[in-house]
Amino acid sequence: MMEVTSISEGIIIDHVPAGTALKVLNYLHIDPTKATIALIMNTTSHRYGCKDIIKIQNSADVDLEVLGLVAPHATVDVVKDSRIVEKQKPRLPEHVTNVISCANPRCVTSSERDIDQLFHLSNPDTGEYRCDYCDEAAKL
């Protein structure tokens, strides 16, 4: 068993899809060269079989809408004085601006300068997002 030190103040993002923790950090704009972070990747999960866990020391909050986009099944624990004082769930935002980019090479976003990357929630049941411009499904 590998031991990872607990954090006394900060945030624990649990149930992150296995192998995606670095990508999630990137989308959350958390700089791994500056923040104090513990990453646990591909660990056992009762719920999903395998998962990643992200612990961020001295962080007060996390963008739950961006998290909803990239890891909709994750959970967020807020830690104060070495105790979990609050549990938060990611939200599925109706609209997402400049978080992900459209992968469709025929999309106008691939050529037009200074254009916002806009996505909308097209299927709340599956968490599917589509590009506002070309309707291509988002690829994370």
Partner: peptide, 10 residues
């Protein structure tokens, strides 16, 4: 009319 998808929205 534009060859890129979404050009009219822009």
């Amino acid at each position: 009319r534009h060859p890129k998808e979404g050009a009219a929205l822009v």
